[in-house]
Design a protein around this nucleic acid. Structure first.
Lengths: 121, 121
DNA sequence: TAATTATGAAACCTTTTGGTTTTATTTTTA
DNA sequence: TAAAAATAAAACCAAAAGGTTTCATAATTA
């Protein structure tokens, strides 16, 4: 695994082993050994999957002593979510409008809460 | 492309060419020739991508005369969305609860689905 | 300090992916 | 009906993906 090419988040989550790694790291940060114990493949193979996830900025590792603890970084998944939002309208005719309102309201609130706390009715 | 193994929706959307194919088909149903015109690769290569998308049940083709018209089937993307919903809470602390309420309500109306706590992949 | 533990790195292997070119087959249409 | 158009199918190819084993290195601990 040359690790030269930049890895895409869509490609990173395409592999079931990598999805399970993300799930494990979402429960608790762990070193590679603890992660590898959950799989039938070798620790080296897990290390390569971690490298791909790291390349997609989905995880990072901090070395403490002789261990390297891996931590989840879910932010890049937002790109996938935004891609999906476009298609959601095609399968969901019911509440898509409400949900889009909620989500656009959320973005608004993220910007607004710094400057304003009360509604401006 | 032996087409023996069943294709996963996560894997199907991993390739940028296939994502663009989905986008084109979301605008208008088209035969393979019209699709291939949007890419620098051969029509045969596009045909293989379409086979993968079809294998993931994301599209289907109906033959009319000498043309085969491809149609988008976005439903399998719901699986990706549900997987993402689990991670959304990690980047969105504000309205995730409201959104989860909206979405669980939606799922309930479509079918009686349990609220899931862990991803199933 | 010597053995153990945890990880990193390199070399290698097989299958899958994403692409090509070539050769049919089936409908239209000139 | 012969030519053109649209697609399908087969054979082939290079590179990437996913795995292995083997060897090396850095911290711990007995």
């Amino acid at each position: 695994m040359p690790e030269t090419a930049r890895h895409d988040v869509f490609q990173a989550i395409a592999d079931p082993t990598r999805r399970k790694l993300l799930q494990l790291l979402s429960e608790k940060e762990m070193p590679i050994g603890a992660l590898a114990a959950h799989f039938p493949i070798s620790r080296t193979a897990v290390a390569k999957h971690l490298a791909i996830l790291s390349d997609a900025s989905l995880i990072s590792g901090k070395k403490t002593g002789r261990e390297k603890i891996y931590v989840l970084h879910p932010e890049p998944l937002r790109e996938v979510k935004e891609w999906l939002d476009y298609y959601e309208r095609f399968w969901d005719n019911k509440l898509s409008m409400l949900k889009h309102l909620v989500e656009s309201g959320e973005e608004q609130s993220l910007k607004e809460t710094e400057t304003r706390k009360k509604p401006n009715h």
